[in-house]
Design a protein around this nucleic acid. Sequence first.
DNA 1: TTTTTCACCTGCGCGC
DNA 2: TGCGCGCAGGTGAAAA
Length: 272
Amino acid sequence: MPELAEVEVTRRQLLPLLGLTVACAEKLSDKNLRLPLGKGDLGRLSGARLDAIDRRGKYLIWHFLGADGVPLEMVVHLGMSGKTLLDAADASPHDHLRWHWSQGATLTYRDVRRFGFVAVGDVGLGTEMTATMGPEPWDETWAAQVAAKAKKGSRSVKALLMDQSVAAGLGNIYVCEALFATGIHPETPAYKLKNKQIEALHEAVQGVLERAIAAGGSSIQDFKAAHGSPGYFQLELKVYGRAGEGCPACGEEIRAIKQQGRTTFFCARCQR
DNA sequence: TTTTTCACCTGCGCGC
DNA sequence: TGCGCGCAGGTGAAAA
Ligand SMILES: [Zn+2]
């Protein structure tokens, strides 16, 4: 579910945990997440103080000072249906992990489809896990880096932007929205893009993500951020999920096609 | 090598 | 009402 915007909203809602210490962390389910948690991984967090939560693409990187004085990191990826709940108001069979913090706060990791994961390791784990990731949306060299990758190969601009090693954090929703905003047909071979179009894509990506973050993310089905507050950006989506509706710019019927197994929504009149 | 397809997993909505 | 099918924010291994 979560793309960069939802992960960033989640990160900001977790910041009140900074400075707190983990009393204990426990598994609530027998089922493994995408990456199985190693034996003793959760135990390493006992007594650890949380000093920072960073985001890289769709990954959250938590920096702790361990009880033994050795720094450690926890990496969280929400997959398609992962959520973090502060002081969860209810319980679910899909609650997999829970952290109990000093001062009584609890954090729950809930993930119906279990495509997400939580990993614990030494300093550098987060950097390792995101080593091949492309530039962040607010990197001023984004367009240059994307243009360099666009020129190689034959893939469509949709496939290009969905590739995390090309541009960090984009997913199906915001790629569809950015392509609509720039009037670029999603099946356009990436090598045909003019530099000016890639610069326009950069602007569009930044704009759509900034507005989505300000709105609390997009709740397509049941996305709730850390406090359980829904995101309202789905109300502002121009094409994603709107097949059959009229294009907000020209009225043409919005179409849905399949690319790389994912549905792409676009306006065939506005996007060429 | 690059690109596409498939598998991972659960729940929901739709058509019959 | 019930069942089968297709679909969903992502990723990476396997296949092409
Ligand atoms: Zn249009």
